Computed example of a mutant assay.
Amino acid sequence: MVRIVNYKERQVEDGRIFFVLELQGGVEMVMSQETNQFYATAKRAFITSTFDEETCKALLGTSMPGKIEKQECEPYQYTVKETGEMIILNHRYVYMPEVESPANEDKAVQRLFAEEHTFSQNGVLEEELVD
């Protein structure tokens, strides 16, 4: 599950305004390469939306099925806000919605057929046949 934790206003080149939602995944424990101690963190990703600001505000705290995954991309420059250091990254974090797997769909169909006795075979309710 991911949670909507924030939203930000963005502007298109032609001046139009739109909003992006900031998503955060679950807590993960990561070992520091410097101290060898664990610390808690969470992956974050942004997704565009068609919502107005009031809707974005109302969505804060909403959970959605899915996860945030690391995805390789073309290298780009990134400035670390805390230090001002510029680094080159070749990944980004993206939201991956939870989808029904074909195996789960097959199980649902199997359950339906396994319970087909619950359906009328002749178009007449069995209760009407019993007198």
Rank of each mutant, 00 (worst) to 15 (best):
K67F: 07
S101I: 05
G25I: 01
P75Y: 05
T83G: 04
A108L: 13
R16I: 04
E69Y: 03
H91L: 05
E9N: 08
K43N: 12
R16M: 02
V30S: 06
V30Y: 04
Y93F: 15
V99P: 01
K67L: 05
F38H: 05
A45Q: 00
T35L: 02
S63D: 13
M64S: 06
H91P: 02
E115I: 08
A108E: 10
E9W: 13
M64T: 02
E22S: 10
V20T: 03
I87E: 10
E126A: 13
S32I: 05
E22Y: 07
V30I: 11
R44G: 00
N36I: 04
C73P: 01
V124H: 12
R16C: 10
E9I: 03
E128T: 15
M86D: 09
E82D: 15
E105C: 14
F51G: 01
V94K: 01
T83F: 02
L112T: 10
G26P: 08
L60Y: 04
L59N: 02
K57N: 09
P65L: 03
L59Q: 02
F46W: 09
C56A: 04
V124G: 08
R92V: 01
T55K: 09
F119L: 07
A40S: 15
Q77E: 10
V2H: 00
E82G: 06
L23E: 00
F19D: 00
R10N: 15
V124Y: 07
E34A: 03
V109F: 12
G15C: 07
D14N: 11
P65C: 05
D106L: 11
A40D: 10
R111K: 08
S32W: 03
I68R: 00
Q11H: 14
F18D: 00
